[in-house]
Design a protein around this nucleic acid. Sequence first.
RNA 1: GCUCCCGUAGCUCAAUGGACAGAGCGUGUCUUUGCGGAAGACAAAAUAUAGGUUCGAUUCCUAUCGGGAGCACCA
Length: 514
Amino acid sequence: MQKSIKELGVKLEHPAREEWGDWAFYGEGNIQPDDMIERTEKVGGFTNIWLKNEWLISQLSIVPKKREKNGKTMVIDYSAPNIAKPFGIGHLRSTIIGQALYNVYKYLGYEVIGDNHLGDWGTQFGKLLYMIESTKTDDLSIEHLEKLYVEFHKRAEDDKNMEKAAREWFWRLEKGDGRARELWQKCVEQSIAEFDRIYELLGVKIDNAYGESFYEVRMVVVIEEAKKKQIAKKSLGALVIEVPGLKTPLMLVKSDGATTYATRDLATLKFRQEMWNPDIIIYEVGTEQAMHFEQVFGAARRLGYVSEHTKLVHTKHGLYLDTDGKKFATREGKSIKLEEVLQEAIKRAKKLGCEDDETAKAVGIGAIKYFDLSHNVQSDIVFDWEKVMALEGNSGPYLQYTFARTQSVLAKVQGSMFNVQSTYKFNPEEMAILRWIYRFEEVVEEAAERFAPNLLCNFLFELAQRYNTFYNKHSILQAESTSSRELRLLITEAVGKVLKTGLGLLGIEAPDRM
RNA sequence: GCUCCCGUAGCUCAAUGGACAGAGCGUGUCUUUGCGGAAGACAAAAUAUAGGUUCGAUUCCUAUCGGGAGCACCA
């Protein structure tokens, strides 16, 4: 006889319809009633399982669960905006999804280290330095740098020498040329100030920001080791590393002697392994870099930079597309100004009657974050302002609203000990909540395993819907009986806690009033 | 040309082998706004096409059509 369902070792499916029970599985299996299970029933090859009222009620006080540290370490690389370029919506995805994964893993007991791998090195600086010097400008504001970048690409179409000059400037930067270093330093400072404003608005704090330039010295070691181990090969004047299963090798050193971002990512991987010895490293980076990470992971394995047990993951998030279904192209200067979007969202929230600036910010930013997170990570998203800033329906504000409702009800009662008899007869709306809320923990686990915050969004939205349906149909404070009142308050409290915790994991604030 | 990802209601998205494919927006009708109507109820509406594997396929395999991304010296 089984003590619990999990000991049976079968994968349990959740029935699509309420009358099919709480769980079901297809095939043979003998499940005995116990503390958790009321009864089972076989229907057409499926075994349906009903849970005990007592157990369902007990879950209301258990979720969300306090977890112990699990002794595992996770490193996550996210956000990673490029210096001298505006913080675009592409990096918005990385920042928001990355932060959600960070929170989820931490919740599950991992030691989590976030690293903002700033794009502060590379040939792009050669382009900028060239433009700054050739136009003799003093204006190093991010707007102007962006203009110079766009201008560079316009002119480079006709003038082949431009690319060459840019490469030379990057080469000078890498060799430590004084003028190049000075300009580079100024550009970095400008950009970081801008990024900090965005992070402040988003309410995101990332543990570390080593950035690509940090690996300047470490790259030398990597290149030496690759040569010594005879893993690096000469090819058309460059130094490359072949990766099993890939036609294109990793570009370790360019034919002009300069490094590439692949060199930096290899050094980064080596550093992370040595520094933290993580069980898992997540790269929250767009899908357009899929091949790059296959190269880096493959080369790192060949070089012995990652231990066997270390899992390397590239989440490959989809792109934001414009309403024509096309990619936003920063090179053409067609990018959306993220800061404007964020401010606009806050403004809209305010217009809807948020009590103060603080809640308007929580609601506005919450809407944007939820819009992003509620999509499957890997699918492309059409960036439609009206949808992004949705304040009703399946949206962040809907969840926040539901939470505020629960808090508003709870504020009207004294005490917080609600007793419910196991013999209580639930109405369908109460039951719908009980049969859903206890799954919170496993949903969080699945979201982590699959790197899919949208699963958590789905769960929370469904919970909020069930609660609102219940709320609309039944009175809580003026319930028909004391036992109903107690149960409904207990449900309200539990739904509130789960919404607050769940939104917190998504990086979305949940104010008590809005 | 090669590689990878994706085609689900009018639109935007869910559902990683299970029972009758779920939502939101939009549309139509409705709910004494008395615990917060940023809410709730009802209705119409979808798996690109053709095969295959399976007791069972939106899901796995093959082909076709359509969209996106990438294909060493940008990141």
